[in-house]
Design a protein around this nucleic acid. Structure first.
Length: 295
DNA sequence: ACGCGTGCCTGTTGGC
DNA sequence: TGCCAACAGGCACGCG
């Protein structure tokens, strides 16, 4: 379940392995994993990887595929003439294997990487996109396709780039409960179930609290807590639960800091009360009934 | 128009 | 020991 800190960690560990490489060929082993841009595969197989970045939970490879075409900026992203975009959903992962490595059981896409800008096309390695549950996807897009992609254009603020006031405001508008607001990618981009529950605990707000009932101070407290939790997780290379590894095969350590996520029935680390599991906004939710009060 | 429920997927876990 | 239901969950989609 890569969320913002995990996708950020993957981008950081993938970049040094692929930036400066040329994509020499692409293999689609599971057609549904290529959700858009099949027609651009020929262009992709001549493209060079310039940058690896992230927007919300999307991992974005910025490519140059035609030296004559000027790179076009997409709002919020570095300019490029072609984009390779991934959503990892729950079980997507990357790894760069040596040249010639065969596909694994759950390998969905393979990008062969060669040297950039040289007549010498000796392969450097193979970028595997593995995805056990195959919920994840890749999209190959021209800048104009990217800028017209509804999911992307609807994404909200980057929580770590926005100020506390702006984050509080994004969470406070609209109806529903506060956990649904945290998970709504149109308000803030990149938050999933782990960081929603953890930030609500740190802010001492009950997940089922109606957003409209929260004071300005409570929303600000949540904004501060959310940013602190995300920042700490990025510093610890994310949370490794189940299958998560970064693009270098490393695990993160933020799971050791969980106060509530996955701790149903265990004691609250602050007050000792048994933590409750419930369903809020359709998701499994764990909270401390004593520390986290609905207003 | 917005909030809610369901389907997509496969591997792991826990109960009987 | 073996079987199977429940569970993990982001997002598209359809319904009311």
């Amino acid at each position: 379940m890569p969320e913002l800190p995990e996708v950020e960690t993957i981008a950081r560990t993938l970049a040094p392995q692929v930036v400066g490489s040329a994509i020499t060929s692409v293999q689609v082993l599971h057609s549904a994993s290529l959700a858009a841009g099949a027609g651009l595969l020929p262009a992709l197989a001549e493209a060079r990887i310039r940058q690896v970045t992230r927007r919300g939970k999307l991992l974005v490879l910025c490519l140059e595929h035609d030296r004559d075409a000027a790179p076009v900026p997409v709002p919020g992203l570095p300019p490029a003439s072609l984009y390779l975009v991934f959503h990892l959903k729950m079980t997507g992962s990357f790894f760069v294997h040596p040249p010639g490595t065969a596909a694994l059981k759950h390998t969905r896409l393979i990008f062969d990487l060669g040297k950039d800008g040289s007549e010498n096309t000796l392969a450097r390695g193979r970028l595997f996109f593995d995805d056990i549950r195959a919920f994840g996807y890749c999209r190959v897009m021209l800048p104009k396709d990217f800028a017209a992609w509804n999911f992307f254009t609807s994404l909200g603020l980057e929580p770590l780039d926005a100020g506390n006031e702006a984050v509080a405001q994004a969470l406070g508008r609209g109806g529903g409960n506060i956990k649904a607001a945290l998970l709504d990618q149109r308000r803030l981009a990149g938050i999933g179930n782990i960081y929603a529950d953890e930030s609500l605990f740190q802010a001492k707000i009950a997940p089922q609290a109606k957003t409209s009932a929260l004071s300005r101070n409570a929303l600000l407290r949540l904004a501060v807590a959310l940013k602190a939790v995300l920042k700490q997780s990025v510093a610890e290379c994310g949370s490794s639960i189940r299958n998560y590894r970064d693009a270098a095969g490393n695990v993160g350590s933020f799971q050791n800091n969980f106060m509530v996520y996955g701790r149903k029935g265990e004691k609250c680390r602050i007050c000792g009360t048994a933590l409750l599991r419930s369903t809020v906004a359709g998701r499994t939710t764990v909270h401390c009934p004593r520390c986290q009060k609905a207003p």
